[in-house]
Write a protein that binds this DNA or RNA. Structure first.
Lengths: 118, 118
DNA sequence: AACTGATGCAACCATACAGTTGTATCAACG
DNA sequence: CGTTGATACAACTGTATGGTTGCATCAGTT
């Protein structure tokens, strides 16, 4: 699944707030409406609703009508997209470590050899 | 390793920009100075320097004097902290799925049983 | 000590976010 | 079909981001 860079931007920006991270966590259960969510936080309902809107724009949650509420549910796929991106950094890092180990294996006894700092 | 919420905020905020994500990727190698990094992007040196400052405040990179440059290096530990946090959401999610499966196993034949929407 | 490569920082502009209060929409229920 | 529970949106404030240009600092090199 290809995700454009501005989308990724929005996902990480959405995570850059403690309240929003908590909303994502709560919405994994997919049981609460916006008003119920708002009751957990020391701010106005409108503020929480704006947080929900940010999360929705980032694709991290969806809303569905149930009765007269709109139930908020976390979109796990989007969460996995973000995690996958962080994984890629680790892959690059591990590849580099492996490469260093190869070099050490190929040319033993050269540790500490002085090279100019350019 | 305990990381305070404002720190987490800064880490994710730092990731919410394509240029900064690319700087983190490049700095895994830990070879380039700020000026060299800046040469890769279509913006002023000062702009890149500010991005580097944001990453540094987030603890995602460190700088070290080498010759007359300051070499930028990614702090993989911080990266892992962010990934670990995303992992936790997945853990919550999987725990919930497991719980659902348990319920299905315990009470077979109740799928589709109508419950009021509260 | 002077030069200069490399980085840091301040001031400024436009845009976006986090919060507030107030008003408007909208659909379920009696 | 009117009431009301629940959500959405608009306007405003303070603060942060992302970019610019210009100047200041700091440490190698000569």
């Amino acid at each position: 699944m290809r995700v454009a860079s501005p989308d990724i931007d929005r996902v990480f920006a959405a995570f850059a707030d403690h309240t929003r991270r908590d909303i994502v966590r709560r919405a994994i259960s997919g049981k609460e409406g916006v008003l119920e969510l708002a009751s957990h936080y020391p701010m106005s309902f409108a503020a929480v609703q704006k947080h929900v809107a940010v999360l929705e724009r980032a694709g991290l949650i969806t809303k569905q009508r149930v009765g007269r509420r709109k139930v908020v549910r976390t979109n796990m796929d989007r969460l996995f997209v973000a995690r996958r991106l962080l994984d890629q950094y680790e892959e690059v890092w591990r590849a580099r470590i492996d490469r260093i180990n190869e070099l050490i294996a190929e040319r033993p006894g050269t540790i500490g050899t002085k090279e100019p700092d350019r």
